[in-house]
């Protein structure tokens, strides 16, 4: 009895989970190969990059902001990592750290523009989207660079049933949930997103917190960039183009509100899985990539529509 009640509560708390289950059941009927272990692991690997990007975006969106630059920052971070090792000859781990630091710096710049420069987040991160992409092209001279071994290993399997990207995704899921629910920074994100003026008048240093929030988003983007480069064993100048939109879609499918104050790590994970399952399943069904885009757009709209209706009915 208790388990069924718990299951119902989990479902009602996570509107997108029901959608994910429906999707999985439908695809396993339509495409028998979908449910194979190997394919499910593939889905996890495919979800990992967007999921990690989306975890970072969850911080930003919960606090009432938006980060459009994460795709470009992911590409730049991976490129800096690859360049440091192959062109500058630095040891792999150091190159990896430099790449991650690049993401943090880009995030700090975003944060500074938003909090101290008072730019709207949309504008500041749109600018960074362009700058980071441009710098990626500058660093790479327009050609892909090989990644150091330590990065390439991120794309490998730890054991036959444990791909590293899946592991990284789960670790970052746990980290995100911890930050959001347990830490000062996380609680402050909800307060700032819910009512920035109330946050300020309650003694929360809103500007400093925003700096931290965008830096976290930049760091997560860098990790996602490394994952992506690891899978391909190279960092590409056009890597992760448009991924920021997938990240935002995952967060929103997961039930977060773009006006801030609402959102959870579990929702974002489900949102990223929904996108990955959908892409994978449509491939299995041999739906043309052109139609895939249409279907994904419809699913995003439906997911948020259903979530809105569900909330309205419970209120």
């Amino acid at each position: 009895m208790t388990t069924s009640i718990n299951a119902r509560k989990v479902l009602s708390d996570n509107g997108a989970l029901g959608g994910l289950l429906v999707l999985v059941v439908a695809l396993s009927v339509l495409a028998p190969s979908f449910l194979s272990t190997q394919n499910l692991l593939n889905v996890g690997v495919q979800a990992a990059v967007v999921a990690v990007l989306a975890f970072g975006s969850t911080f930003v969106i919960v606090s009432g902001g938006i980060d459009l630059s994460v795709g470009s920052v992911a590409a730049l971070s991976a490129m800096v990592g690859a360049w440091s090792s192959t062109e500058a000859g630095l040891p792999g781990p150091l190159a990896l750290l430099l790449g991650l630091a690049t993401g943090v710096v880009a995030g700090l710049v975003n944060g500074a523009l938003v909090s101290y420069g008072r730019l709207p987040a949309f504008i500041a991160t749109l600018a960074m989207l362009s700058v980071a992409r441009g710098l990626t092209l500058v660093v790479s001279q327009g050609t892909p660079l090989a990644t150091p071994d330590v990065v390439s290993e991120l794309g490998s399997n730890l054991t036959p049933f444990l791909p590293v990207p899946l592991l990284v995704m789960l670790v970052f899921f746990g980290l995100t949930a911890f930050v959001l629910t347990r830490t000062y920074q996380g609680r402050a994100m909800y307060v700032i997103g819910g009512n920035e003026e109330a946050a300020r008048l309650s003694g929360i240093d809103v500007r400093k917190q925003k700096l931290v929030i965008y830096a976290l988003s930049g760091l997560f983007a860098a990790v996602a960039g490394m994952l992506l480069a690891g899978r391909l064993a190279s960092a590409g100048p056009q890597a992760a183009v448009g991924y920021e939109l997938d990240a935002i879609a995952a967060v929103v499918i997961g039930g977060a509100s773009l006006s801030g104050g609402v959102g959870r790590a579990s929702g974002t994970l489900i949102g990223a899985l929904v996108l990955a399952v959908l892409r994978n399943g449509l491939n299995q069904l041999q739906v043309s990539p052109f139609w895939q885009q249409v279907v994904i757009g419809v699913v995003i709209a439906l997911a948020v529509l259903l979530d809105t209706l569900r909330r309205r009915s419970t209120r």
Partner: peptide, 13 residues
């Protein structure tokens, strides 16, 4: 409502 409360949060928060 505009400056004192976070309306999206709970009484406890």
């Amino acid at each position: 409502k505009g400056q004192g409360l976070v309306l999206t949060s709970s009484v406890g928060e």
